[in-house]
Computed example of a mutant assay.
Amino acid sequence: MRHLYEAGTPPAKRFRYALLGLDILSIAWIVIASFLPPSSLVLTLDVLLGLVLASEFGMRIAASGVPLRSLVNPFNLADLVAILSLLLAPLLQGAMAFLRVLRTLRLLHSVKLITTLRSDLPFFRRNEEATLAAAQLLVFLFVMSGVVFETQHRANHGIGNYADALYFTVTTLTTTGFGDVTLPGTTGRLLSVVIMLAGVTLFLRLAQALFRPTKVRYPCPACGLERHEPDAVHCKACGQLINIPDEGNA
Rank of each mutant, 00 (worst) to 15 (best):
M1I: 05
R2Q: 08
H3K: 15
L4A: 12
G8C: 15
F15Q: 01
R16S: 03
A18V: 11
G21Y: 03
G21I: 00
D23M: 10
I24N: 02
V31K: 02
V31Q: 14
A33D: 14
S40W: 12
L43W: 07
D46S: 13
V47F: 15
L49P: 05
L49Y: 05
A54E: 13
E56C: 10
F57A: 09
A63C: 12
S64R: 01
S70H: 06
F75I: 13
A78K: 10
A78G: 09
D79C: 14
D79E: 10
L80M: 05
L80F: 07
P90V: 12
L92F: 06
A95R: 08
L99R: 03
R100S: 09
V101M: 07
L105G: 07
R106D: 15
S110A: 10
V111L: 10
K112R: 11
K112F: 14
S119W: 10
S119E: 15
D120Y: 01
D120R: 01
L121M: 05
P122N: 02
F124T: 00
N127D: 02
E128Y: 03
E128K: 02
A134S: 01
A134N: 00
Q136P: 03
V143P: 00
S145K: 00
V148E: 03
T151H: 03
H153G: 08
R154G: 13
H157E: 10
I159P: 00
N161V: 01
D164C: 13
A165G: 10
L166M: 04
Y167R: 12
F168E: 04
V170A: 14
T172Y: 09
T175G: 10
T175Q: 08
F178G: 10
D180R: 04
V181K: 06
T182S: 06
T182I: 14
R189H: 12
S192Q: 09
S192G: 13
V194S: 07
M196L: 06
A198R: 10
L206Q: 02
Q208N: 10
L210H: 10
F211L: 14
R212L: 08
P213G: 04
K215P: 01
V216W: 01
Y218Q: 01
E226L: 08
R227L: 15
H228N: 05
D231R: 11
V233K: 13
K236L: 07
K236P: 06
K236F: 15
A237K: 15
A237F: 06
Q240Y: 11
Q240N: 12
N243Q: 07
N243S: 15
P245N: 03
D246G: 12
E247D: 15
E247Q: 13
